[in-house]
Amino acid sequence: MKYIIKKLLTLILTLFFISVLVFLIFQVIPGDPALSILGTEATDEQVEALREQLGLNDPMPKRYFNWLTGVLTGDLGKSYRYQESLNEQMAVSRLIAGKLPVTLTLAGLSLLLIIIFSIPIGILWGGTKSRALDGVLNVLSQFTMSVPSFFLGIIIIYVFGLIMRWFTPGGYVSYREDFWGYIRYMLFPAITVAVPKVAMTAKFLRNSIITQLKSDYVRTAYSKGARRFRVLFVHVLKNAMIPVVTFIGIIAAEIAAGSIVVEQVFGLPGIGRLLVSSISTRDYPVVQALMLYIVSAVVIVYFVVDILYRYIDPRVEEQ
């Protein structure tokens, strides 16, 4: 419990520094938000009035504080570009809330696929004595790791979408309309994200198992009379999984941050695509909010991994 509180305080402190950094970066970027909103034809008086209204003339600490209060209460400002109606800009929080479920579903499904496939493959790979199987898996993993995801996405669209007709390419269905249709469509981008990560994770687990199998406690287990199957599953697996949990954590953080390429290839309205379009249109409030989300997601996932770690590795306690 003390450990969790300590980690939680570290997390909060980290998030605070991140917020300062994200805020400062967007102070330094040239360009006047008031001018961006009003356009080049606005008069100086109009710009000055809006600057006053937006609080841009306040001193920096006050502006940071106002911004942070906004973030914590869910007010991330208004998009420069997206409009709710003719004369009202869309709130960034609403904009992201519409896109985030797609990215999170993609991340969740991919992570599920990674765990379901990489762990059995890794165990089989690490536990096998067959050099032929080891060789086959080695070639297969090298291959899947090296195929770029946009290309894998195109292949999957071609094979499963155009030939097998298991889904309609580009025919994204919103989860509000048809939940199972949505999951069914999301499965294919999730496979695209998962395939190279499955290969990496399986290889990582395999190496971890092989290292563990060489250790002395395995020899002790054999001398007690344990057989290979028992040694692998009862003795080695838990020790071998410890570094793999961290590895999966890193992957989870990566995919929670959104897969820009895969969202683009499959035409998913997720935050990856929003990020690309916001950067190209200089929609800074959106970029700022997305940056805050991505960095926070990574930090929070690492926090969860740290907590999980403690439950599977008894040695963490005394360190």
């Binding site: 002395d216 001398s223 007690k224 003795h235 020790n239 599977i312 590795d313």
Partner: peptide
């Protein structure tokens, strides 16, 4: 009965997770 063995290195010969 089956003979048993005591190993050299007591640091590595015990399963750390048990």
């Amino acid at each position: 009965v089956k003979p048993q063995m005591i190993f050299q290195d007591p640091y590595s010969s015990l399963n750390p997770a048990w």
